[in-house]
Amino acid sequence: MRRKTLSITVNGEPVEADVPANRLLSEFIREDLALTGTKRGCETGVCGACSVLVDGKALKSCLCLAAQADGASITTIEGLGSRDDLHPLQESFMACGGLQCGYCTPGFLIAAADLLARNPRPSDDEIRQGLSGNLCRCTGYQGIVDAIREASEKMNGH
């Protein structure tokens, strides 16, 4: 049982894979599936750059074995929206200056999607609390907070 056969859904597509038991979910996504939008920032579960949605909930994929995700539906940043059909969060991150270098951006978008799923109309304070598992060094977070508020308003039909 040094290996594990996975049967999962990634960004809507079924995936079968045979991985070593000690393969991290982040390694599996980046290296085996070549979905490099999920970033490696600290590998200790702090920076949040590797966040992905597992059954709709944001996790840090560097703190999770690929084996643990067996049977789950995973959404990475590549599955959040497409170039021609961006998620409202992706649009508002662009418009509000929610990104600069872009390295933390996938993780923030995933964390934001999780937040809005739990709390569709968060206050600014709730947005900030909802981002407490993600680090950004470029924006000072203001553009990110603004972007999530704007997306929330748009998604709620304002």
């Binding site: 949040g48 703190l63 999770c64 999780d114 937040l115 598992g133 993600n134």
Partner: peptide
């Protein structure tokens, strides 16, 4: 506790 991602896991 901790942060949202850790609370989810």
């Amino acid at each position: 506790l901790a942060n949202p991602q850790v609370r989810n896991q």
